[in-house]
Write a protein that binds this DNA or RNA. Structure first.
Length: 642
RNA sequence: GCCGACAUAGCUCAAUCGGCAGAGCAUCCGCCUUGUAAGCGGAAGGUUACGAGUUCAAUUCUCGUUGUCGGCUCCA
C-alpha cells in the first residue's frame, strides 16, 4: 500500500463528505451529520441528494415513519434524513421500542413498499403547514425555524429563506424538502433492513428530550444490501477489541475499572517499539526528553486554565494536609514550568520538550470505547516553545513528522482538520480572547496553505487554549476519532508568565505548540490493530518468529535456533508442545506471527530450516544465517514487506 | 452522563413453559512421532457478573448495583 496525500479542496465547505483514498481510488463517504457540521454541509447535501441512493434512503425513512405512526398514532415524528449507508428517523413515542417492534415495523414496510404509492410534493405556506401539523410539536418547531428566515432541521441558520413543502405517500404526510423517489416501487422490498434502536437528543442537544431513533440501511438492490451486510461482518473481524483479545494485546478488568486498560506482554512490546520510533525521530528533530509527576497541586491547574475550562474531564482531587492535588489530564502545565525554570534567550528557541506522559481523563462512562477512548492514556506528547517568527517552520515541522509516521505505517485514509473556536463558546469552552483566536487561526491556515497540505475546517472543535490541526481517522466499525494532533497555544504561556529575551533585549512571550503525532499509545495501538487487521509488520510484531519442530526428536535443535534468533535481537519462541506440526502452524497463523520456521529431520541433518511466511508462502531448506539477515533487515528498516 | 440491549467454564456459544447447568476449543494426563491452518482418548474446569425479592423450586420472573455492546452527547 503506497501512502498518498489526501486531496481535499481546502476551505471549500465540503465538510459533509469525506474524500478517502482506498485501494488506489478516491471515494466519497457520507456519514451522519453532527449538529455542528450541518451548517457547513449545504453544498454537498446537494450532491448526495442528486443520487438515486439518497432518494431511496430518504423515501425508505418516510415509509418507516408511516409504519411507526400506524403502530403509535399518538407518536410524534421529528426528522429522518439519509445518512451514510442508510437513514434514520427520530420519534417521540409513548413507550420504548423493542427488537420485536422493529421486526413488525420492517414487515409492515415491505407491505407498504409493494403498494406502489406515489411520493407527492406540495409547496405550502407556513400557515397551511402549521394547520396540517397542528398536533405535531416537533414539526411546528421546524416550521417556525423555516419561517423565521431559515433554520434547518438541525437548528442551524440557513442562508436563504427556504420554501416549505410536504411530501405525501399512502397515509403518511411529512414536512420535507425532499427529494424522493417517484413511487415506492423504486424501493426494493429486499434491499433495506432496520438495523438498530438508539437514543438521540432532539436537535443533538443533551439538554433536550431524548428521542428514539431507528437506524436502517437501504440500497438499490438486494445484492448491494448483502454486500453491505457482509462488509459489516468483515469490519467486526477487524475490530481492535476482538483482535486485542485474540492476539493478547490488552484486557480490561471490571475490578480495575472502566477505561483503564491492562497491557499484556504482547501489547507491551508494541508500545516499546512505538516509543523507540518516536524517540529516534524526535531526537533527530531536536526534541529533549523530560519527565514530570502524575499529580500536582490545584494551583498549577488553576493557573493553566484547566480548572475553569477542562475540569469536567478531570478526576476529582485528593486532599492532603489541606492541599488539593489533581491527577494530570495533560502534561503541558509541567512543561511550561520547565520552560520557565530559567531565563531564556531568543538564541535558545525553539525549545522542544517531549515526554511520553501518562495522563488521566474522566471520560463519561458511555463514551468509553475499547482502546480508542480510555481514561488512562500515555501521550506522544511534546511542547515546542518558539517566537512568532518561528511558528510556521515549527508547526509545519510537526506536520512533516506526521507524514513520516503515516508513510511508515501506510496510513492513507485520514483527513486533516483545522479545528476552530466558536463565538458562542468564548469564555466557556474557550479562553475569551477573540482577536487572538482569529490571529492564530489565520497563522495555522497560512502555514498549511503555504505548505500545500490539504485540510478541512471545522468550527467549535478547538482546544480551550487555541486552534489545532487534528488528523481524523475511522475505526473498523466506522467511528471517527482524532489520531494525531498539532495545537497552537497562545493563551497559557502568558498565564505562566513565560518569556524569552528577544534580539532587542526585550521580553517576549513565546507561542507554544502542543503536538502528539503518534496520538496516545492506547488510540495508536487500537488504530494500528485495525489498520493492519492484526498483521503487524515484523518490527511491530510481538512475536516475530515461531520455531516449530515436526517431531520431538528436533526439540533440542529447535530450541537452539530460537536462542540464536534471540541472540540476534529477534523475538522468537520455540513451540515444543505435544501438538502435531499442523496444529502448531495453525496456532502461529492465528496469532499472526510473521515467520514460522519449521524443522524436521531433513533440516536438522542438513543444518538448515524451512520457512513458512504468514502469507502462506514457503521456502524450504534455507540457511538460518540467511534467514536471520532477512529478518534483521526487515526490522532495521521497519519494512512493511515480510 | 442519557436511551436501549446484553452478561452462563480461560475463549466461542447451548440449556423447551421456572424443575439436577451442557458442547467445542484452550488447560492437565496418557497414546500417536507426525512435513505446512485443528491426530486420538481421558480428566479437571461453574455461588450462571454482584446483591436483594417473588416462588416448594430461579440461569430463567421482578428490582437494584457493576460492566460490556449499539447509539446520543463528548473526545487524544
Amino acid at each position: 500500500m503506497e501512502p498518498r496525500e489526501i486531496k481535499l479542496p481546502s476551505r471549500c465547505g465540503w465538510e459533509f463528505f469525506i474524500w478517502m483514498m482506498e485501494n488506489g481510488q478516491w471515494s466519497v463517504a457520507y456519514r451522519p451529520l453532527r449538529r455542528k457540521e450541518a451548517k457547513m454541509s449545504q453544498q454537498i447535501q446537494e450532491r448526495y441528494e442528486d443520487t438515486q441512493l439518497y432518494k431511496i434512503r430518504h423515501s425508505t425513512a418516510h415509509v418507516m415513519a408511516q409504519a411507526v405512526m400506524e403502530m403509535f398514532p399518538d407518536g410524534k415524528p421529528t426528522i429522518g434524513p439519509p445518512v451514510e449507508n442508510g437513514f434514520y428517523y427520530d420519534f417521540d413515542l409513548p413507550r420504548n421500542l423493542t427488537p420485536e417492534d422493529l421486526e413488525a415495523i420492517e414487515k409492515r414496510m415491505r407491505q407498504i413498499v409493494q403498494g406502489k404509492h406515489e411520493f407527492k410534493k406540495t409547496v405550502i405556506s407556513a400557515e397551511e403547514a402549521k394547520k396540517i401539523f397542528a398536533n405535531q410539536p416537533y414539526k411546528l418547531e421546524l416550521i417556525e425555524g423555516l419561517e423565521k428566515g431559515g433554520m434547518d432541521e438541525y437548528g442551524n441558520p440557513l442562508k436563504e429563506k427556504p420554501e416549505i413543502s410536504i411530501y405525501q405517500q399512502d397515509t403518511f404526510t411529512d414536512l420535507c424538502r425532499g427529494p424522493h423517489v417517484q413511487t415506492t416501487k423504486e424501493i426494493k422490498q429486499d434491499a433495506f433492513k432496520l438495523m438498530s434502536i438508539a437514543g438521540a437528543y432532539w436537535r443533538g442537544d443533551e439538554n433536550n428530550k431524548m428521542l428514539q431513533r431507528i437506524y436502517g440501511t437501504a440500497w438499490e438492490s438486494k445484492d448491494q444490501l448483502k454486500e453491505y451486510l457482509n462488509q459489516l461482518e468483515e469490519a467486526k473481524k477487524r475490530d481492535h477489541r476482538k483482535l486485542g483479545k485474540d492476539l493478547e494485546i490488552f484486557i480490561f478488568d471490571e475490578e480495575v475499572g472502566p477505561g483503564l486498560p491492562l497491557w499484556l506482554p504482547n501489547g507491551g512490546i508494541i508500545i516499546e517499539e512505538l516509543e523507540k520510533l518516536a524517540k529516534e525521530l524526535e531526537e533527530k528533530a531536536g526534541y529533549s526528553r523530560v519527565r514530570t509527576p502524575n499529580i500536582t497541586k490545584e494551583d498549577l491547574f488553576l493557573r493553566s486554565g484547566h480548572l475553569p475550562y477542562y475540569a469536567e474531564s478531570m478526576y476529582p482531587p485528593m486532599e492532603l494536609e489541606g492541599v488539593k492535588y489533581y491527577i494530570k489530564p495533560m502534561n503541558c502545565p509541567m512543561h511550561h514550568k520547565i520552560f520557565g525554570a530559567k531565563g531564556r534567550s531568543y538564541r535558545d528557541l525553539p525549545i522542544r520538550l517531549a515526554e511520553y506522559g501518562t495522563c488521566y481523563r474522566y471520560e463519561k462512562s458511555g463514551e468509553l470505547f475499547g482502546l480508542m477512548r480510555v481514561r488512562s492514556m500515555q501521550m506522544n506528547d511534546a511542547h515546542i516553545y518558539c517566537g512568532e517568527d518561528q511558528f510556521e517552520q515549527e508547526f509545519m515541522g510537526v506536520i512533516d513528522l506526521y507524514k513520516k509516521y503515516f508513510d511508515l505505517f501506510g496510513i492513507d485514509k485520514y483527513v486533516m482538520r483545522l479545528s476552530l473556536h466558536s463565538k458562542q463558546g468564548l469564555g466557556k469552552k474557550y479562553v475569551d480572547n477573540e482577536p487572538l483566536w482569529v490571529k492564530t487561526e489565520d497563522m495555522v491556515r497560512r502555514a498549511m496553505n503555504n505548505g500545500g497540505v490539504p485540510y478541512v475546517e471545522r468550527e467549535d472543535e478547538a482546544a480551550f487554549y487555541g486552534p489545532k490541526i487534528d488528523v481524523q481517522i475511522w475505526s473498523a466499525i466506522g467511528r471517527e476519532f482524532s489520531l494525531a494532533t498539532n495545537q497552537v497555544d497562545f493563551a497559557v504561556p502568558p498565564r505562566f508568565d513565560l518569556k524569552f529575551t528577544n534580539k532587542e533585549g526585550v521580553d517576549e512571550i513565546p507561542l507554544c505548540i502542543h503536538r502528539a503525532p503518534l496520538s496516545t499509545h492506547e488510540r495508536m495501538v487500537g488504530f494500528l490493530l485495525e489498520h493492519y487487521a492484526g498483521n503487524f509488520p515484523v518490527w511491530l510484531s510481538p512475536e516475530q518468529v515461531r520455531v516449530i519442530s515436526i517431531t520431538d526428536a528436533q526439540n533440542e535443535y529447535v530450541e537452539k535456533i530460537a536462542a540464536e534468533l534471540r541472540e540476534n535481537g529477534i523475538r522468537a519462541h520455540a513451540d515444543l508442545s505435544a501438538s502435531r506440526m499442523n496444529a502448531k502452524i495453525r496456532q502461529a497463523q492465528l496469532m499472526k506471527v510473521p515467520y514460522m520456521v519449521v524443522v524436521g529431520d531433513n533440516e536438522m541433518q542438513a543444518g538448515q530450516v524451512s520457512l513458512r511466511v504468514r502469507d502462506g508462502s514457503q521456502e524450504n531448506n534455507i540457511s538460518l544465517a540467511d534467514f536471520i539477515v532477512r529478518v534483521k533487515d526487515r526490522i532495521s528498516r521497519r519494512a512493511s514487506e515480510l
